[in-house]
């Protein structure tokens, strides 16, 4: 275990801003992409459901 206390962990040896700045942005962007993907998936299914089945050719 490297860290004596939670405060030391957050301070990250004085580089807290840089380390947590990069980790926070990275996981925020990844979460954003996941949310966008889910919304896009649901959106297309809902849209196609609303439009209804294409006219039967036969």
């Amino acid at each position: 275990m490297n860290w004596e206390s939670l405060e030391a962990f957050i301070a990250m040896g004085g580089y807290g801003l840089y380390v947590w700045g990069s980790y926070a942005v990275t996981f925020a962007l990844v979460a954003l992409e996941v949310v966008l993907l889910v919304l896009r998936g649901r959106g297309i299914v809902a849209q196609l459901a609303r439009i209804g089945a294409p006219r039967r050719r036969s």
């Binding site: 275990m1 490297n2 860290w3 990250m12 040896g13 004085g14 580089y15 380390v19 990069s22 980790y23």
Partner: peptide, 18 residues
């Protein structure tokens, strides 16, 4: 929690993991 502190860069190097 496992990787040690880097001699020159201290804790800043942990950004390397992403």
């Amino acid at each position: 929690f496992v990787a040690p502190t880097d001699q020159q860069q201290g804790e800043a190097y942990r950004i390397i993991f992403i």
